Amino acid sequence: MTGPAAVRAALPRLLTTLAPHQAAVVRIGVAGTWGAYLLREWPNRRVLYGDRSPWSAALNERLLADTHAFTALSWSDGRWWFEAVYLLALLSALALALGWRTRASSVLFALTVLSLQNRNVFLGDGGDNLVHLMAIYLVFTRCGRVWSLDARRRARRPGKDPSEWGEPRALADALAAMLHNCAMLVIAVQVVLVYATAGWYKVQGSRWQDGTAVFYPLKLGYFTPWPELSGLLGGSLLVTFALTYGTVVMQVGFPFSLAARRLKNVLLAVMVVEHLAIALLLGLPFFSLAMVSADAVFLPTAFLLAVRGRAAGWWAARRPERPGEPGGPVEASAGGSAEAGAAEAGAVQAGPGRASAGEPVGGPGD
């Protein structure tokens, strides 16, 4: 099937909101990572981004004149304006992580992320750059469709049936769904580019070629929160060689693994473990959390639903029963009941022939 017929066949799927669970996990992860970082740096906030920063407002103005980057902190260099923006950044991160008024909070989150990061561009690392990009992309997604306070509110107060919508509302909904799908595709492509460029740059480095690149950060005091553990790993030539070459192989091979669902899932699990190890061994928790949050765009929907089901069962088993409250399973998510979750999982496992709104970017039924 080619030409106009193929377009007509694909159009209903393109106008359906895809990968809502992956979007929710990316939303929670990115907002939670940035919020945790702001809380950790609360005592140092004025030195990092405020009126006490060595990178003064005057120097930043000169840089902004060349880059034309946005930051609300350029409107005033007073302390209380900075404090208001910083507090607003914390509140918007919390609101987005909880999924409260997601459309508004995602815009506010993106503006505050840009405002703080563009106030002092010399503080960021790869994780901050990824948060910067994801904050922009999330504005165009429907990341509050599930696992959010918005979804809980919609479940309690459902609106009109879609069949009752007028043409303008239905058209706007279809365009919003298509915009969401495009944004999720951009997020997936961004993650692929991150791994592909990192992997191919490593291939060109002599330390990565001879298998010793991992050895050096394990010997630097700045990257050794656990000196004994780092010394144990760095003292083994075989371990450092395997970690060095394994990192390169995974990063270079990940884009190609997307054609094979099972291989992609295996590599994704290994890379998540690698990021958690980086957080522990090198003391880079926020970089690792940002990477894991972005990687979530490729997580299988069936896996996310299974995790949700286990979490709901664990909560139901430990939740004290209230007098007069009926027994049985509690709601598995803010967006629907446990039965709805099971039905959705069945739709995901039905195969490529049955499209599901829960399918991730990786491919049908993935």
Rank of each mutant, 00 (worst) to 15 (best):
10 A>L: 13
17 T>R: 13
23 A>Y: 15
30 V>C: 03
31 A>C: 07
45 R>I: 06
49 Y>R: 02
55 W>T: 13
56 S>V: 03
57 A>V: 08
61 E>L: 07
62 R>W: 04
78 G>L: 00
83 E>G: 04
84 A>E: 05
85 V>L: 07
87 L>Y: 00
89 A>C: 04
99 G>N: 11
103 R>N: 03
108 L>P: 02
129 N>F: 14
132 H>E: 15
136 I>H: 10
144 G>D: 06
156 R>P: 02
163 S>F: 04
165 W>H: 12
166 G>M: 09
167 E>T: 10
171 L>K: 05
171 L>R: 09
190 Q>H: 08
198 A>T: 14
210 D>K: 01
215 F>C: 07
227 P>L: 12
238 L>I: 09
240 T>S: 04
240 T>F: 03
241 F>D: 08
242 A>R: 02
248 V>F: 00
250 M>N: 01
253 G>N: 00
253 G>A: 06
261 R>W: 00
261 R>V: 01
272 V>F: 01
273 V>W: 00
276 L>I: 06
276 L>Y: 03
278 I>C: 05
279 A>F: 08
280 L>Q: 07
282 L>G: 02
297 V>T: 12
304 L>T: 15
310 R>G: 08
314 W>R: 15
318 R>Q: 07
318 R>E: 07
321 E>F: 00
322 R>Y: 08
324 G>L: 06
327 G>L: 04
335 G>A: 14
342 A>L: 08
346 G>E: 08
348 V>I: 10
350 A>N: 00
352 P>A: 15
353 G>I: 10
361 V>M: 02
361 V>I: 06
363 G>C: 05
